[in-house]
Design a protein around this nucleic acid. Structure first.
Length: 893
RNA sequence: GGGAGUUUAGCUCAGCUGGUUCAGAGCAUCUGCCUUACAAGCAGAGGGUCACUGGUUCGAACCCAGUAACUCCCA
């Protein structure tokens, strides 16, 4: 035999992937078949494949391949996301390496570099997906900044603006001083950080105006009167607008109505009262810094405090700080602490743990900052989007995410859609010299509109209009993805969108349930009056063995391509799926891939076995029972697999398939029919076995596309035409199941296991043939299973008897007795002990059954079926006990 | 601080409407095997106080309450 002992994936993977491409098996165009559609969650255009992608895309590919093999018109649309912040950050870094600063470039110049970068690195991740076997319709590849998609984004913006859902406003935003942009709440990662809590003394003004009698009485305290505040951000004291205390705080009644001086700069600020202040945190005196803290901002609004912003966009201090101007906020913090200490204004410093926000993209500490931003109102769009999920039009899998979804949708906040970046769709707002703005698709349209709206500005020229510098949040383009990939905005009634939309399944991570999934549902409703997809399969997060999220910075993530190199794409796919029930995080370990590799190798070797057989046409078929059994077993498994897929339990579906192939097919069926070495096999068994094998290749294909395609084309299965491929083979449909046969073979397997066990414990070589005598008290006809038992347990004979045999090793299956006479007689004492133990167990069992049956309340409350079962248990146990008794007395005699 | 979730074998997880001899699977472990498809394998075995405490029920891994630990979301 010249076939390699192990399957070598690499060559087959390259061969079959290009074969599928060359013959357009991934291509989908609308036709009369039922569509099955998935749009890929577009990965970042400059990203590289990580384990999360592997999981996500393996699942999508399994679903799409299965749909294709069920005769549906399967369409998987790939593409990438322009990922404004991440990509711009990468381009800026690349330019910096070349000695170019973004500041020195014009917008068009910068964008030219960015496009150049995108063209160079943009395709990488999609190329990597091909290695995994992803069967996307690559001709449909889209990019969120493709012309049509960008146009859709702008049109959408205008549409929503006209509806009054987009507005401009000053808001406290999460400012990323490194990316120099606002980021959404969802893009801020909060981490607990060890910080210091600084206690700073503010001098209380000696000449505070006397507002109440109370305070005059306290004036025994002289000029050197201080109040102390605790803060983690001493560098912001120059932006303080007030000191706030709780009016109920008895320690500070003497401060009511007074003023205090900010140390170092000696600016006077009022002491205000508000119950917002927690009395037992810090000193109970809170410095109020409206420009640099969200809560302080709200407090400031309430008390009409001035907003003093002392930070530049890059996180350095500006001239309003008066001191340390130009210093970075963290450097300033250190310096100011020293200055305070020098001035005697630092009381003490404590260690303190608190939550600090970091930018997801740049990892910079987020700075709360007031700025003019564009917002999109969410409330009205959230309502229908919530209903679709609540009423089941859209199913979240697993269902538990429904709660989280509802909670978010009911408490939705307006969406900050502007980003202070260049890479992305520039906001179509055009400012007039007087500061007013016009929303229009182009400069020309804006100019026309300006002229008609404001005829008084007679000398207005088109060049006078200034477009808003900001771009839109990336999610503002990706929320349109399921519609825009089919050109549903440009051409809302085209054949593709009518055929493919709504799509079927969306496979994505729960982390983006809100800012992507929920918004796609809103967009689907708003722009097509329809849901964008029917099911949302939420994958878990890929974690390492220790439960840590896999990430580049931790260095705990294997390179997916290395894994494919090592275990083959099929092995990695199986490995990903083995460990990933829907919605649960996945504790990934390479050993799962190893298990996957071992599995396809098992299949490979089963193939080698069958491939090596010679057929003798004249031989009769001795294996009809084995064939009928496996046929039934296969059909039974098909139902289980279908059922698991219907519930999106992909791991379970794979496990059923795995056990069907490894245990039922290889370990049992092939061993049952395997001819003695170098002996030929009969034609009928051979043909049936090949059919079984082909069906196994089909059900395995979605999980392991490459090896199944490779084997599919072997001449063992006959001549194939060009288009006769496993990838488009029709999945086998359910056939008949002979449950009685399945039950009997289970007993036969037990018999074989018992005999093998006797061999093991008595150290009898498998080569030494034994005899088996059966006293069948049940109605099972063991003679028909003679061949199978004899072969798998190596028996020289199998007798049906009517009387017990003494001195033989024995076992009991249900009420049937089995005897294996051995050369040396078994120890009657040990045998008696074994029987006695079994008897005790049965007696105990019987007692509990009887207790139930004699319990009046059980008999009156339990459903009739349950009582029947208990009665059957009782009868079985009693019958078994009787046999045990007999065996025991036979031993004694 | 508010909300959600999780806890079953060494590991990763099933266990559906409370009821079958219900305590399961895969991996790992242990024992014995190079038995001509496969040592990436074969045969067999061991392993759990279903987190803890109480309650409801004829009957609880499952329902209820409390406790503990962990995770996530929001503030």
């Amino acid at each position: 035999m010249s076939i390699a002992k192990t399957y070598l994936p690499k060559e087959a993977e390259e061969k079959w992937y290009s074969y599928w491409l060359d013959n357009n098996f991934f291509r989908s165009v609308p036709d009369e078949r039922e569509p099955y559609t998935i749009v890929i969650p577009p990965p970042n255009v400059t990203g590289v494949l990580h384990m999360g992608h592997m999981l996500n895309n393996t699942i999508q590919d399994v679903l799409i391949r299965r749909a294709r093999m069920k005769g549906k018109n399967a369409c998987w649309v790939p593409g990438t996301d322009h990922a404004s912040i991440a990509t711009e950050a990468k381009v800026v870094a690349m330019l910096k390496e070349r000695g170019i600063s973004k500041k020195d470039l014009t917008r068009p110049e910068f964008l030219a570099y960015a496009w150049e970068w995108k063209e160079k690195y943009g395709g990488i991740i999609l190329e990597q997906l091909k290695k995994l076997g992803a069967s996307c319709d690559w001709e449909r590849t889209r990019f969120t900044m493709d012309e049509e998609l960008s146009e859709a984004v702008i049109d959408t913006f205008i549409h929503l603006y006209k509806k009054g859902w987009i507005y401009r406003g000053i808001r406290m935003v999460n400012w990323d001083p490194q990316g120099k942009t606002a980021v959404s709440d969802e893009e801020v990662i909060r981490k607990e950080v060890n910080q210091k809590l600084y206690y700073i003394k503010y001098a209380v003004s000696p000449k505070s105006e006397v507002l109440s009698q109370e305070s005059t009485q306290d004036s025994g305290l002289k000029t050197q009167d201080y109040l102390t505040v605790a803060t983690t951000r001493p560098e912001t004291i120059m932006a303080d607008a007030a000191i706030c205390i709780n009016p109920n705080d008895e320690r500070y009644t003497h401060l009511h109505g007074k003023k205090a001086f900010i140390p170092l700069i000696n600016r006077e600020i009022p002491v205000i009262l508000d119950e917002y202040v927690t009395m037992d945190f810090g000193t109970g005196c809170l410095k109020v810094t409206p420009a640099h803290d969200l809560n302080d901002y709200e407090l400031g609004q309430k008390h009409n405090l001035p907003v003093i912003d002392i930070l530049n966009d890059d996180g350095t201090l500006n001239e309003k700080a008066q001191i340390l101007v130009g210093e970075d906020r963290f450097a300033a913090r250190k310096k100011i602490v020293a200055l305070l200490e020098e001035a005697g204004a630092l009381d003490k410093v404590e260690e303190y743990k608190s939550q600090v926000g970091f930018s997801e993209r740049t990892n910079a500490v987020i700075e709360p900052k007031l700025s003019m931003q564009w917002f999109c109102k969410m409330e009205e769009m959230a309502k229908p989007a919530l209903d679709y999920v609540l009423n089941g039009d859209i199913k979240l899998i697993p269902e538990k995410f429904g709660n989280t979804y509802r909670h978010w949708m009911e408490n939705v906040r307006d969406w900050n859609i502007s980003r202070q970046l260049w890479w992305g769709q520039q906001i179509p707002a055009w400012y007039l010299p007087n500061g007013e703005y016009i929303i229009a698709k182009t400069r020309e349209e804006a100019f026309e509109e300006a002229k008609s709206l404001q005829p008084q500005i007679s000398n207005l020229k088109s060049e006078d209009l200034v477009q808003d510098e900001d771009v839109l949040d990336t999610w503002f383009s990706s929320w349109l993805w399921p519609i825009s990939v089919f050109d549903g905005f440009k051409d809302p009634d085209n054949a593709d969108i009518n055929y493919y939309y709504p799509t079927n399944d969306l496979v994505t991570a729960p982390e983006i349930l809100f800012f992507w999934v929920a918004r796609m549902i809103m967009a689907g409703h708003e722009f097509r009056g329809e849901i964008p997809f029917k099911n949302v399969y939420l994958t878990g997060i890929v974690r390492d063995k220790l439960g840590r999220k896999m990430s580049k910075s931790l260095g705990n993530s294997p390179d997916p391509l290395d894994l494919i190199e090592k275990y083959g794409a099929d092995g990695v796919r199986v490995g990903m799926l083995l460990s990933s029930p829907a919605g649960n995080d996945l504790m990934f370990d390479e050993s799962y891939c190893e298990q996957g590799r071992n599995f396809y190798n098992k299949l490979w070797n089963a193939f080698r076995l069958v491939k090596g057989w010679e057929v003798d046409e004249k031989l009769p078929n001795p294996n009809q029972i084995a064939i009928d059994w496996f046929d039934s077993r296969f059909n039974e498994a098909l139902i289980e697999i279908e059922d698991n897929f219907a519930q999106y339990r992909l791991s379970e579906a794979l496990m059923v398939t795995y056990k069907l192939v490894w245990d039922d097919f290889c370990a049992w069926y092939l061993e049952m029919i395997k001819p003695v070495y170098l002996q030929p096999i009969d034609k009928q068994t051979y043909n049936r076995t090949i059919t079984f094998f082909e069906n196994i290749l089909k059900i395995l294909h979605p999980f392991m596309p490459f090896i199944t395609e490779e084997l599919w084309h072997d001449e063992l299965f006959g001549k194939r035409t060009t288009m006769d491929c496993c990838i488009v083979a029709q999945l086998p449909t359910n056939g008949e199941i002979n449950s009685q046969l399945l039950g009997n073979v289970e007993i036969v397997k037990q018999i074989i296991t018992h005999i093998r066990n006797i061999r093991n414990s008595k150290q009898i070589s498998p080569k030494e043939a034994l005899t088996l005598s059966v006293k069948a008290n049940s109605g099972i006809d063991y003679s028909s299973y003679k061949t199978i038992i004899a072969r798998l347990a190596n028996l020289s004979e199998l007798n049906l008897i009517n009387d017990k045999i003494s001195g033989a090793s024995s076992f009991l299956i249900s009420t049937d007795e089995f005897y294996v006479p051995l050369n040396e007689n078994i120890d009657p004492l040990a045998e008696a002990e074994r029987l006695q133990k079994e008897k005790e167990y049965l007696n105990g069992f019987l007692r509990s059954v009887n207790a139930k049956l004699s319990n009046e309340r059980f008999m009156s409350n339990a459903k009739p079926g349950i009582i029947e079962v208990e009665l059957k248990k009782k009868a079985d146990a009693e019958a078994k006990l009787k046999i045990l008794e007999e065996s025991l007395s036979a031993l004694a005699s």
